[in-house]
Write a protein that binds this DNA or RNA. Structure first.
Lengths: 178, 178
DNA sequence: CATTTCAAGTCCCAAATGGAACTATAATTG
DNA sequence: CAATTATAGTTCCATTTGGGACTTGAAATG
């Protein structure tokens, strides 16, 4: 192993840096390599380290799966949506969203009515209990996002926001349709 | 539906904006709401729209699963790693990594030898065929990342890089240990 | 207005995923 | 240096996931 020499008293530098910053020790050379999709990789890491664990907590604590909580999120900010809309804005396949919807309906967290203009569509909306649940999870996300961005200055954060807005605005040029 | 009025000749503004920018129409109000983890949400969207589809292509084209290709990536830039190292730097659970490793070994894409200093560990490394495969997928990522970042100026891109570096450097303060 | 094409949503099933229990080795401690 | 605790890695199994086929209703075509 790169780490090990002989006297495995633990490498002093690593230990000195307090805690295992083994992570950075490993990541840095990977990010330094030329021709690497650095940004894509790190964004995907955020997914693994940040989003994944949150969804896990939400599942344990509220019994809501990833697509379920995200559906509540959508409906909390856009009061009437079809299933297709939700697929579109979340970037998720329609069978997964379908499943999420039916579980949310069963639990009484959302409501549907038929779309008077299109017999195939349903019009979804949030019910009070769903809104309450959403608010609880929202806090969780907010707090943890704050931790993640804690190392950024206020200006940095504004910049990040601006860049993500730009990236999302051009979303049709790079995103794959599910 | 919000869209629909009566004459469902398709809403002219949406149509005028060319193609369905329905996505932005839906996303904007969600991102404008106060108290929303905007950055976390959009980063997770990148995962859905960008990473997900790439992994799908790689799976179809090369028969490599997500954890498998990421393992090759790690080994391509850090020549000797243990399984635990890979878990750490990828933010993935160890059973998933274990499975990935055994499939890569079976296909002859990587090699293991026993760690002389620790009987529990294996020392993993890339074999030429694995490196070749990695190079092919690397190109894919690179091209698609370029598309995603196309709307950013050169300066923007440098800034994004700087911000992600900062966020990753503080990773221990916000990431959940798997 | 019959026929064909397309879109919304559901269902089925094979595959992927990850928690938890387990094995084996290493480190710690009294 | 036995007993205990911790770490690396594997196996098992229940759950989640998503492609694809299918059903039903809307639009387009001739």
């Amino acid at each position: 192993m790169t780490t090990a020499k002989k006297s495995r008293k633990a490498d002093p530098r690593g230990a000195a840096t307090r805690g295992s910053s083994r992570f950075l020790e490993l990541l840095e050379p990977m990010m330094a390599a030329p021709g690497v999709a650095r940004d894509a990789y790190r964004i995907s890491l955020v997914g693994n380290f940040f989003n994944g664990p949150i969804y896990l907590v939400i599942q344990k604590q509220f019994g809501l799966l990833r697509d379920e909580i995200n559906t509540l999120f959508c409906l909390a900010h856009f009061p009437e949506l079809s299933q297709t809309d939700i697929c579109l804005v979340m970037g998720r396949p329609k069978n997964s969203v379908s499943r999420a919807i039916s579980r949310l309906l069963q639990r009484g967290l959302i409501a549907v009515r038929d779309d008077p203009d299109d017999g195939r569509k349903g019009v979804l909306s949030l019910r009070p209990e769903g809104y309450r649940l959403y608010q609880d999870t929202r806090r969780l996300f907010e707090e943890r996002e704050a931790q993640m961005l804690a190392s950024l200055t206020k200006a940095d954060r504004a910049t990040l926001d601006r860049l993500l807005t730009k990236i999302m605005a051009s979303h049709e040029d790079w995103s794959e349709l599910f």
